[in-house]
């Protein structure tokens, strides 16, 4: 489904991604782990088309189509979804209005008619319950005054609503207590499907106890330095990034 070949990207003239290679097939769940600053968010943002990052080399295809040629919104409509590490607020725009606009933009792209307000309301309530968010959140401004955990649940709710082909989850586990982690994981597990791929970015292995990945990759210094199965994450938990010769100031914490 997604194929990344020798991807290089830089921000403000500084090269961050230095040749990423990755193949993800439909139905698979991949985890990308790595210390802070290794380029995990950069990879996520580049895939979603953030123009702050410049792709200097390499190619990315989604089902054979050149992804890098598409605008951000076109990639979204082709099924790329990014759950943000730091979701931004849009004051005064209700979550409901925002999501309905998004859903209708996607539907229009597929040649389907707009969803009416009542239909949409029902759908939105259903998905908000799936991530244990009070439907009252739908009326609040987008991420406005949401706690860290609420923002993350809100991101997962949006993935459930938009049903993407490839969901990229950037540290959707960080800052969550154990109950919230369970809720978010249930949401992500509900996303797992034959025709959908999930790319999970995380700093900690604990998330992988709840969402069991098919593959684990370790990103360091802008390159994937090791790939393996589920057991790689467990090994990392035990031995820390230092085991792979990677310096990580937070290695000591990475096991919690």
């Amino acid at each position: 489904m997604l194929s990344i070949k020798n991807l290089h990207a830089s921000v403000e003239g500084k090269e961050i991604l230095k040749g990423i290679n990755l193949e993800i097939k439909a139905g698979e769940v991949h985890a990308i782990m790595g210390p802070n600053g290794s380029g995990k968010s950069t990879l996520s943002q580049v895939l979603a088309g953030n123009e702050a990052f410049e792709v200097t080399e390499g190619e990315v295809t989604l089902n054979g189509e050149n992804l890098l040629e598409l605008e951000t919104e076109e990639r979204a409509r082709e099924g790329i979804f990014l759950a943000f590490q730091y979701p931004v607020e849009i004051p005064g725009v209700s979550n409901l209005q925002f999501l309905r606009t998004a859903v209708n933009a996607m539907r229009q792209h597929k040649g389907e008619g707009e969803m009416n307000a009542a239909e949409f309301m029902k759908l939105a309530k259903d998905v908000s319950k799936q991530v244990d968010l009070d439907p009252a959140f739908l009326k609040r401004g987008v991420n406005e005054g949401f706690s860290g955990g609420e923002k993350k649940r809100n991101e997962v709710m949006q993935a459930l609503l938009l049903q993407p082909k490839l969901a990229i989850l950037d540290e959707t586990d960080s800052g969550l207590d154990i109950d919230a982690l369970q809720v978010v994981s249930n949401g992500v597990n509900a996303l797992r499907a034959e025709d959908r791929a999930i790319l999970m970015v995380t700093h900690y292995q604990r998330l992988l106890n709840h969402i069991v990945p098919d593959y684990v990759h370790v990103l360091a210094g802008g390159r994937i330095v090791k790939s393996g199965g589920r057991e790689l994450a467990l090994e990392l938990e035990e031995r820390g990034y230092g085991w792979l010769g990677i310096k990580d100031e937070e290695a000591a914490n990475s096991a919690n």
Partner: peptide, 9 residues
């Protein structure tokens, strides 16, 4: 970017 990532023009 958030809006466009959700498919909005």
């Amino acid at each position: 970017f958030l809006c466009r990532q959700r498919g909005i023009e």
